[in-house]
């Protein structure tokens, strides 16, 4: 380690000239969905707080969550949740040292999108049936 020349070497990867690939895109999407869900988390906590406060306040919060923009946020967050959920499990499997070959990574990436999409549709069906 003593002769490693730090500071003069080119930095990698060069994000601006890098061709988008499923593995790098899914990596950044994991972060985007994770941070993005903070908005829905805030809304859900607010909705629960409103319900615990009283019916009048609940109606206000419930109106916001079930308005078109509220539904847009919740449906988007629903996919974000299941994507982050499935990709998180993929990460946990990687942590055991399994599935790290490039072909396996590409295949598990496609499976992740498939299961996340299915769970999103299932959640929307349950939500619509309950409404």
């Amino acid at each position: 380690m003593a002769d490693v020349n730090r500071g003069n070497r080119p930095l990698s990867p060069h994000l601006t000239i890098y061709r988008p690939q499923i593995n790098s895109m899914m990596s950044i999407l994991h972060r985007i969905t994770g941070v993005g869900m903070s908005l829905a988390f805030f809304l859900i906590v607010w909705w629960l707080l409103a319900a615990s406060t009283g019916e009048e306040y609940f109606d206000t919060a419930n109106w916001v969550l079930t308005s078109w923009i509220g539904i847009l946020i919740l449906v988007g967050s629903c996919f974000a949740l299941w994507y982050h959920f499935c990709n998180g499990i993929r990460h946990l499997i990687w942590d055991t040292g399994r599935g790290l070959e490039i072909e396996q990574v590409k295949k598990s990436g496609v499976v992740t999108f498939g299961i996340a999409g299915f769970l999103t549709l299932l959640t929307i069906v349950v939500a619509v049936r309950g409404a």
């Binding site: 319900a51 609940f58 419930n62 969550l65 949740l81 959920f85 959640t123 309950g130």
Partner: peptide
């Protein structure tokens, strides 16, 4: 994250089922 795997599955479906049901449903 390991804890959230079962917790998410158990939380989300009752939650979205309640969401459109109004004050009493909560």
């Amino acid at each position: 994250s390991v804890a959230l795997v079962p917790l998410t599955l158990l939380f989300i479906f009752p939650f979205v089922n309640t969401l459109g049901g109004g004050y009493e449903a909560v």
